[in-house]
Design a protein around this nucleic acid. Structure first.
Lengths: 301, 301
DNA sequence: AACGATCATCATCAGAGGTTATGGAATCAA
DNA sequence: TTGATTCCATAACCTCTGATGATGATCGTT
């Protein structure tokens, strides 16, 4: 069996489509434009099909090119996985670990988790990327991320996942709110309230919104916060109430005019966990890393 | 992203494992032994892992090698599929078509189907391989077969499939059997009978055996035929009775001392159909070919 | 001990794949 | 229209990969 395309040719092909231009694709691949051009031509010659239409503002895949693009991507990803499988086998817990974390988890969990990771596995080169669930998942599928730390309550699609811990919600109200002095509240007690929520794209927003529908609460209109920090500022300013994940309270809850009240059990919660591509060669590693992402033990009072 | 292994290196690696020796693997790949040896060393150097243990009588994969072997196979298969996708896109219904057919179908359907195929698509280069279901499926998964023509009643696993037609069973008895003059029989009437069956491995055997259990018939011990032809000889010789698929009767049924009796509807039947790898780029082609595998119309009497 | 089989090494060479410089076509601004 | 600009293809040249055949080293067998 003679192998027809080379991985290098496929890499160039994918790069050209992704960049929409030869010269920038060439730069991204670390080669000169003529070099890339020649390889792509050779690929097209060998396959007997024109893959990219050299249109003016932007090169576009032909029909055939579009049909082969995903196969090419899958092959390149498979090659990457193979090398990673080799390294993992030779020396586990080494090499790059591209970790994606959602914005409503990163600032609260990473300060403890990152040192723990570095300490337990000093040869792991950690790259952290913070983004919303959907974009993280796309990056994961494309092989630009290795591991995600996020809420497993969101729609994750066909990925391997492992729950790490549950993160209960608490009610956050201004100190002059009628519930501010309560030791706990029932879920049903937020019925009729209008909650301040995060802006679109945050999985936390979607989950709390679902909770609103289930309990008879609603979303406070006119304003959506871009972070939990902003949200807390607004609650403390008397603009409304909201739900905060417990992990955020130690940091976000230190605010005059803000009271946080736990829910009575069973409290509504999100499940924080890890996700990775099912075909990732490092699944076993990731499972072993999971405990390091648990929140640090609070001092018993 | 620098691509670490080349497809050629992976091809050599897989060949060495499959052949158990460098020199024969090299011959199979069409290169000299030192060439292959060097590439494999380079692969091992780049991956930082020894992949094959140069044991004396036979080289064996190391633990790491075994772990990477399936990934390597998948990549090579993916590359093959990609080229095929390109050719299919450029000129559908051309190139090699490696068709696997089970032994209880091949002699009855191929005499009409093969000319029909050649006629409809003269640029299709047909390679036909006859074998039992399990082995065909393995060849299919490995990429050594493109398309299978078989009974969809067997366990096929995770493959794409398309039913082409139903092939009803008929009862075959010696002419001196009490049922020999009947125009039809009921399924329940074979209860208590002992049927002659094919030897192990034929899906037809398994299916008829299931039918026996369902109807209260049993298998005639002491003898298992290696083909339907043999089976018919034994029935005609008065050794017992059996079930024959309708498609075989025009050929196998021409025998003195043999009577074939249809079952009353709904007659027990097998479903003949096509199967291919889900990732095959030629699925659409195969679906278009399906009608050519229908049995030829019988002349109405 | 000698032999045969098998994989590694060596010296060598063709060509695949890269580079820079340049050409030509399309786009855009004036 | 014209000139400037952008972008891909081509050309000439170079480097080093990946092949070859011959030979060496090692191990199991006779």
């Amino acid at each position: 069996m003679m192998i027809v395309p080379t991985l290098r040719q496929l890499e160039y092909f994918v790069a050209v489509i992704d960049h929409g231009a030869f010269h920038s694709a060439a730069k991204a691949c670390g080669v000169s434009q003529p070099g890339l051009s020649a390889q792509l031509q050779e690929l097209e010659r060998q396959l007997g099909v024109v893959l990219v239409e050299r249109a003016r503002p932007k090169v576009l895949p032909t029909e055939a090119g579009a049909a082969l693009l995903e196969r090419a991507r899958a092959l390149l990803l498979g090659a990457q996985d193979l090398t990673e499988a080799a390294r993992t086998h030779a020396r586990p817990f080494t090499g790059p670990l591209r970790l994606g974390v959602i914005p409503t988890v990163a600032p609260y969990l990473l300060p403890s988790a990152v040192p723990a990771l570095r300490n337990a596995h000093p040869d792991l080169r950690l790259f952290i990327h913070e983004d919303e669930t959907d974009r993280l998942l796309e990056q994961l599928e494309r092989g630009h991320m290795d591991l995600l730390l996020l809420s497993l309550d969101a729609q994750l699609g066909d990925v391997a996942r492992l729950a790490v811990f549950d993160d209960a919600f608490q009610l956050a109200v201004p100190t002059d709110h009628c519930l501010a002095r309560r030791k706990w509240v029932r879920e049903s007690e937020i019925a009729g309230e209008a909650l301040l929520l995060l802006e679109d794209g945050h999985c936390l927003r979607d989950q709390v919104l679902d909770l609103c529908h289930a309990t008879g609460a609603s979303e406070s209109t006119d304003f959506r916060a871009s972070s939990l920090g902003t949200l807390v500022q607004m609650v403390a300013g008397g603009e409304g109430i909201t739900l905060l994940p417990s992990m955020s309270i130690e940091i976000e809850g230190r605010h005059a005019n803000l009271a946080t009240i736990p829910f009575r059990r069973p409290a509504p919660a999100r499940t924080i966990g890890l996700a990775w591509r099912k075909t990732s060669p490092r699944g076993a590693e990731f499972e072993a890393l999971a405990p390091l992402f648990r929140p640090p033990k609070r001092q018993p009072r």
